[in-house]
Amino acid sequence: MNRGNQLDFVGYDPSTDEAYLIYDREKDYSLPIAIVKGIAALTGEQAEEIPPLHSVVNPDALDALFEPLAEENERPLGKVSFEYYGFEISVYASDVICINTSRADFDSDHPRS
């Protein structure tokens, strides 16, 4: 869940090596920024130090893909996956962002809950 500028991980599944977070488009930043902040939280880096997301996916298209179809009508289904900064990222229409860390090369002192 997003609280101000803080990004909290909802969970971590050690059997799949995946961190999960909830994205709430009503909060203060876009889906692409939530993804970058999620990677920053895992790696311990500042979001500004991470390569731009647009190097692998169009951020505007990603945001538009999961926008509601009409006012008060959320998208019930959908998933998009891509690799970014050594992580496998999956974004679901249910507002869950999954970050698979199994192939990523980063310091193991990252916050996993």
Rank of each mutant, 00 (worst) to 15 (best):
T43R: 12
E48C: 01
K37L: 14
L31D: 10
R112Y: 08
L7Y: 01
I89L: 04
Y29R: 15
F66I: 02
D13C: 09
A61V: 09
I89T: 02
N73R: 10
G4T: 04
N73V: 15
S90A: 15
E88P: 00
D63V: 00
G38V: 04
P32M: 08
P51H: 03
L21R: 05
A70V: 01
A70H: 12
V96S: 02
N58L: 06
N73M: 12
G78N: 08
F82W: 07
R75W: 01
E74C: 01
I39S: 08
D60V: 11
I89K: 01
S108N: 05
Q6T: 13
D105L: 09
H110A: 12
E83N: 13
E72C: 06
D63S: 14
L7W: 02
I89R: 03
T43P: 04
L53E: 02
I89V: 15
G11T: 06
D95W: 04
S113H: 08
G44A: 06
E18W: 00
N5Y: 08
V96D: 04
P32N: 10
A40C: 06
E48W: 04
L7S: 07
L65V: 00
A40T: 05
I99A: 06
V56T: 14
Y92H: 12
L69T: 14
S55Y: 11
V57T: 12
N2Y: 01
E74H: 08
E71G: 02
P52H: 10
Y12R: 07
E88C: 02
D63L: 09
E45H: 07
D13M: 05
L77R: 14
E49A: 15
F66Q: 03
I89C: 05
S55R: 15
E45R: 14
P52Q: 11
I33H: 05
F9Q: 03
P14D: 08
S55F: 11
V57L: 13
L53G: 07
F66E: 11
E48T: 12
P59V: 09
Q6D: 11
V57E: 07
Y85V: 02
Y20E: 09
S81Y: 04
D24E: 13
I99L: 15
R3Y: 11
R112F: 12
S81R: 13
E18D: 10
D13R: 14
